[in-house]
Design a protein around this nucleic acid. Sequence first.
DNA 1: CAGCATCCGGTACGATACTG
DNA 2: CAGTATCGTACCGGATGCTG
Lengths: 120, 120
Amino acid sequence: MCPYRIVLEHVTSRWGVLVLIELLDRPYRFSELRRAIGRVGRVSEKMLTQTLQTLERDGLVHRDAKPVIPPRVDYSLTDLGREAADQVRALALWTEQRMPDVERARHTYDEARTRSAQAS
Amino acid sequence: MCPYRIVLEHVTSRWGVLVLIELLDRPYRFSELRRAIGRVGRVSEKMLTQTLQTLERDGLVHRDAKPVIPPRVDYSLTDLGREAADQVRALALWTEQRMPDVERARHTYDEARTRSAQAS
DNA sequence: CAGCATCCGGTACGATACTG
DNA sequence: CAGTATCGTACCGGATGCTG
């Protein structure tokens, strides 16, 4: 499989999308980020960790761990990450905007299928 | 979960991305589309069917089934689908472009981890 | 050719408990 | 607080066989 597709899948992954969009606003701490995303769709601690590690490895997210007690870790976007996040957010906004059209299309589709089911 | 996130996941899904990008060039028949995508990552017949149905239901893809023997079905983008596909392609192109940066970031990341593993 | 039905393995994902 | 480790499950996705 093409190497760039891997990165594309990281960026467009379920939680990757949400992480990038949230971090576009401002840096977040781990649990804080988890709560912020939680308003849209609950993410498990494990998945958030995994997603952040993947994005960090790809150079999209910067992890700043301060050696204090209790631990404090801040996540932010790198310049590269911001470029990706901008595009992802644009896509998300577009989706939100076009939701009515999608709903209408679905309704038409479902009705057509219901009819043909009745006809059988 | 927010309704628009569902659509976003359809669009950014593994095969959804590739279908949208391919259809941006021109309409495709089923098997033809499968082969076209196959150059990047093999997709099973089942997944392609499923992806196309989802995108059709969301009003992004138009399905034109001609009642002939042998069957001929053409898939194309709707206006709505083209809007989505444009954004997805932009993201894919960006990813391809920035691949060197990602590779470099990964190398740095992996090396740092190797070192700390040796230190233990 | 286009697609549906069925079975099945891998893994993505969540819940929980534990550590520094 | 910010994770790691372990376990169980649900679902993704592939392989195969069949239909119009």
